[in-house]
Amino acid sequence: MIEDLAMHLADLVENSLRAGARHVSISLSRCGDSFLIEVSDDGAGIPQPELARVVDPFYTTKRGSKVGLGLPLLAQTAEETGGSWAVEPRPEGGTRVRARLGWDHPDRPPLGDLAGTLVPLIATSPGVEFTVELSDDRGTWRLCTGEIRERIGDIPLTHPEVLCFLEEALREGMDAAGLKEDR
């Protein structure tokens, strides 16, 4: 099952991509004991009547799939670690998912391999722009695929050297934002 936060994040990003998003913003911020995960997109959005059911494990809009466990599991993880969660429509269209977890709570799942999870997803989604923001109480680190594409032109993000660059950049960002596993 979903064992670490990187997997949760990959699941949220997949939801956004499936909703036809052209821009996905991923934000991770740690402030003291509070760890906030936020993914917002400009996809099709979730109609109001369905919003209430997003954490119902037996509810899914995916055909051929019997259960949609991603969001219910994240909601559960947030609540178990003394945090909270919200799934909201964005006024400008699309959806925003937020989950706040207790960083020091013993039930918080490990971060997992964030760079190794996000970079392959980002690189293999042509036509979708990603913004990744990592922050702590000292500052914010940001990566925009738009800025990267500007510099590499027609070279795809899946080019081996670009992949290496992205992973390295993200790892540097995690260090800069104090997102280190200390257990």
Binding site: R151, I152, G153, I155, H159, E161, V162
Partner: peptide, 9 residues
């Protein structure tokens, strides 16, 4: 990235 681009192109 510019160097990577030049090599890749």
């Amino acid at each position: 990235l510019r160097k990577i681009r030049e090599r890749a192109e």
